[in-house]
């Protein structure tokens, strides 16, 4: 059955460089550098990536960073808390626009 997302495509991610090698290389070098230990540890960055994967709703990223999080020794509870952080920010981002709605409502009201 054909689907828009195929888990096997994740392994082919690097192939995007074939059609634009220079930018592809720059991206993957940058990507690799981002996840190295820095002011934040590689482990902390993995959990951030897991949360962001959910926020941007990327199925490839969710698969990749679930596995990565397990390999960094995080358990179910820690990982789900990270997803809740993403959920809270996304939910909050929606809700905070309610203030804009309230402002506009008041502007248009007597």
């Amino acid at each position: 059955m054909k689907t828009y997302y195929d888990p096997e495509d994740l392994k082919k991610f690097g192939k995007v460089s074939e059609w634009q090698p220079e930018l592809g290389k720059k991206f993957f070098d940058y990507y690799g550098n981002v996840f190295e230990d820095g002011a934040l540890t590689k482990r902390e960055k993995t959990l951030i990536a897991l949360a962001v994967s959910h926020a941007v709703q990327c199925p490839y990223c969710i698969d990749a960073y679930t596995e990565d999080s397990m390999e960094q020794g995080f358990d179910e509870e820690q990982m789900m808390e990270a997803v809740h952080v993403a959920s809270a920010i996304k939910g909050g981002a929606t809700l905070v626009h309610g203030v804009q709605m309230m402002n506009k409502y008041k502007d248009l009201s007597m």
């Binding site: 540890t41 596995e67 397990m70 390999e71 960094q72 020794g73």
Partner: peptide, 19 residues
């Protein structure tokens, strides 16, 4: 000794030891 409880590789030993 920590063995992964599933089909994945183990974490960095020193980091997990601290936890």
């Amino acid at each position: 000794v920590y063995n992964p409880s599933g089909a994945f590789l183990p974490p960095d030993q020193s980091v997990l030891e601290v936890e």
